[in-house]
Computed example of a mutant assay.
Amino acid sequence: MSNIIYFVVPCYNEEAVLEVTAQKLMEKVESLIQRDVISPKSRITFVDDGSKDQTWPMIKELSTTHHLISGVKLSRNRGHQNALLAGLMTVKDLCDATISLDADLQDDIDVIDQFIDKFLNESCDVVYGVRNDRTTDTGFKRHTAQMFYKIMNQLGADIVYNHADYRLLSRRALNGLSEFKEVNLFLRGLVPLVGYKSDVVYYERHERFAGESKYPLKKMIAFAIEGITSLSVKPIRLVTTLGISVFVISLIPLLYSLVQWMNGNTIKGWTTLILSIWTLGGLQILCIGVIGEYIGKIYLESKQRPRFIVEEFINEVD
């Protein structure tokens, strides 16, 4: 008996691409069903993350006209990571595996066959979609992305290089992921922590064919900070190291000043004093900010608020 695969697609204001995306995905799923690669009970689940346009009405309309389409509506906007997790957790007991991908279909759906092959024939619980190059990115985005991955790995976060959220998760991996209860989500870092056998599939990322990117520079920076502070405590350790280093360095001008005082020399040093005050003050504010970021996360986690609330789930079962 072929396996049931649910394709989970987070959506936020995606009315410009939704129809084309749904059509392309349906063609792909139907071809897999016809070749008996996956079960006819497989579905494409669009997750509406509190969109302000016609995304949810379009999902509802698609679900009534196409039996392969199902939909999850969140009660309000919770961000891409929470929307993706909401879709995964909603369907995890209905399928044998999920494949998550973005609504703009920049991820190459032709490699889905390789995902499923590694799941079925190589018993992989996790299959990561990894970009083979970044030629479609701007030079700025390409270099900042590479810097982000390097920093994350140096800080001890076990993330897959050039992997976003295009991945297959078996039901066992989904159940493992459900055990992680943190509110501050960074799925690229959490999934490797689940463990189990994994592999990668390389693909070429396409240009977005319509609509606008939901990750401008401001959101990319916030996402990077979220990932670093959610997965590693090394920034706090760096603050400690910095404090010790500054203290040790400060002993040098202190000894110099004492020697000059003992020799009866007048210490002018106004410029040096002001420079030191500004430098140390800036370092202190930076360190307080880093510590405050972690304290803020502890505050949010302690509230144990729900990461998402599903308002409606449309799913036609054969």
Rank of each mutant, 00 (worst) to 15 (best):
M89A: 07
T135N: 13
T138I: 07
G87R: 13
P40H: 13
V127W: 05
T144R: 13
T21K: 10
K60E: 08
T55P: 06
K41S: 14
V111R: 15
V72W: 00
E61G: 09
D133C: 15
Q23G: 10
S100P: 05
S63N: 04
C95N: 03
I69A: 06
K41E: 14
T136H: 15
D137W: 15
K73P: 00
L25Q: 10
I59H: 00
V37N: 00
I69E: 02
V130P: 13
H143T: 14
T136I: 15
Q23F: 12
D93A: 11
V111D: 12
K24D: 09
T136F: 14
L32C: 12
D102A: 09
D53R: 06
N132W: 11
T98I: 04
H80S: 03
F46D: 03
L62R: 07
R43I: 08
H66I: 02
E15V: 10
L84T: 15
D53H: 04
L85K: 10
L25V: 11
A83D: 04
L88P: 01
V126L: 05
F46M: 05
V111N: 09
I99H: 07
F119R: 03
N77D: 00
S51D: 00
Q54Y: 07
K52C: 06
L62M: 11
F115C: 09
C124D: 04
E30K: 14
T21N: 12
D133M: 12
V91P: 01
G79N: 10
Q54R: 12
F140N: 06
D125G: 09
Y128L: 13
L68D: 02
I44W: 01
Q23R: 15
V127I: 13
N132Y: 10
S75F: 01
V17R: 06
V29Y: 03
P57M: 11
Q81I: 01
N77S: 06
D96K: 03
V91T: 10
A83I: 05
D53K: 05
E61S: 13
T138L: 11
K24F: 08
Q34E: 08
A22Y: 05
K73D: 00
G129D: 06
S31W: 04
D53C: 04
E27V: 03
L68N: 09
I59G: 01
R76L: 04
D93Q: 08
M89N: 08
E19Y: 07
R76E: 13
N13V: 07
D49R: 01
Q106F: 03
I99Y: 08
G71F: 01
N13T: 09
V111P: 09
D113L: 14
K52T: 06
E30G: 12
R35L: 10
I44F: 02
Q54W: 02
T21P: 05
L25T: 08
Q106H: 02
D49E: 02
L25R: 09
G79R: 14
T138C: 11
T45E: 06
V17L: 10
D125K: 01
I99N: 08
D113R: 12
L68H: 10
E122Q: 11
R131Y: 03
L84R: 12
D113W: 06
R131D: 05
L18A: 07
K41P: 00
D96A: 02
D125V: 00
E14S: 14
R35Y: 03
N132V: 15
